Lab assay of single mutants.
Amino acid sequence: TEKQERAIEYIRRLGYSEEEARRILKKANGNPDLAKEIARRIG
C-alpha cells in the first residue's frame, strides 16, 4: 500500500536496506506501538 511504501522510504532514509526496512515493517504489523510510532514519524 502507499502507507507501506512511505514507511519503507522513511526507514531506508534512516540507513536501512530495503530488506531490513521490510523486516521492520513486518514486525510493526504485529506491534501496534511500533506501527503507530512509524506512522507518526512519516505523517
Score class of each variant (00 low, 15 high):
G30C: 07
R40E: 15
G15A: 01
R41Q: 15
K36A: 07
E2G: 09
E2H: 11
G30M: 09
K36S: 05
R40T: 11
I38V: 06
I11V: 03
A35H: 01
E20D: 12
E9V: 09
K27H: 12
R23L: 14
S17H: 04
I11H: 00
Y10V: 05
A21H: 00
I24K: 00
S17K: 04
I38K: 02
G30T: 03
N29R: 10
K3N: 13
N31W: 05
A28N: 02
D33M: 07
E5I: 11
A21S: 06
N31M: 05
N29S: 08
R23W: 15
D33E: 15
L14R: 04
A39Q: 02
K3R: 13
E2A: 12
K26G: 08
R23H: 13
K27R: 13
E9G: 06
I24S: 01
Y16C: 04
A35I: 03
L34V: 11
I24L: 08
E37F: 07
G43T: 15
I11P: 00
Q4D: 07
I42G: 15
Y16K: 03
Y10R: 02
I42E: 15
L14G: 01
Y16S: 01
D33R: 10
R22M: 09
Y16D: 00
R40L: 15
A35T: 01
I8A: 03
A39N: 01
E37K: 11
N29V: 05
K36H: 04
E9D: 11
P32E: 07
R23Y: 14
R12S: 05
R23V: 12
A35N: 01
K26S: 11
R23E: 14
L25I: 06
G43S: 15
G15N: 03
N31R: 06
N29K: 12
R23P: 00
I38R: 04
R6I: 10
L25M: 13
I11K: 00
D33Y: 08
E37A: 11
P32W: 06
I42A: 14
K36Q: 08
N31K: 05
N29H: 13
R6G: 10
T1S: 12
E9W: 10
G43Y: 15
A28Y: 03
E19A: 13
E18W: 08
I24T: 02
A35Q: 01
E19S: 11
G43K: 15
R6Y: 08
R41L: 13
A39L: 04
K3M: 14
E20R: 06
K26C: 08
D33W: 10
E5Q: 13
E20Q: 13
E37T: 07
D33C: 07
E19K: 10
I24A: 02
N29A: 09
E20V: 11
L34P: 01
E9Y: 08
P32V: 11
E18H: 08
E37M: 08
A21N: 00
N29L: 08
R13I: 08
S17L: 05
I11D: 00
A7S: 05
P32L: 09
G43L: 15
A7I: 08
R23I: 13
L14D: 01
Y10W: 10
E20K: 06
D33K: 10
Y16V: 04
Y10H: 06
K36F: 07
E37H: 09
G43R: 14
L14H: 04
K26H: 11
E18C: 08
G43Q: 15
N29P: 01
K36N: 04
G30N: 09
N31F: 04
R13E: 14
R22W: 13
E2S: 12
A39C: 09
I24R: 00
P32G: 07
K27N: 10
E18I: 09
R22Y: 13
G30H: 06
G15M: 01
R6D: 14
I11Q: 00
A7L: 06
L14C: 05
E20L: 08
R40H: 15
E37I: 09
A7P: 03
E20T: 11
Y16P: 00
R12D: 00
K36M: 15
R41T: 14
R41A: 14
G43H: 15
K3G: 13
N29D: 10
A7G: 03
L25P: 00
S17P: 05
A21E: 00
A28V: 05
R13Q: 14
G30L: 05
G30E: 04
K3T: 13
D33S: 09
N31G: 02
E37N: 07
L34D: 05
E2Y: 07
E2D: 14
E18A: 09
I42F: 14
G30A: 04
I42M: 15
P32K: 03
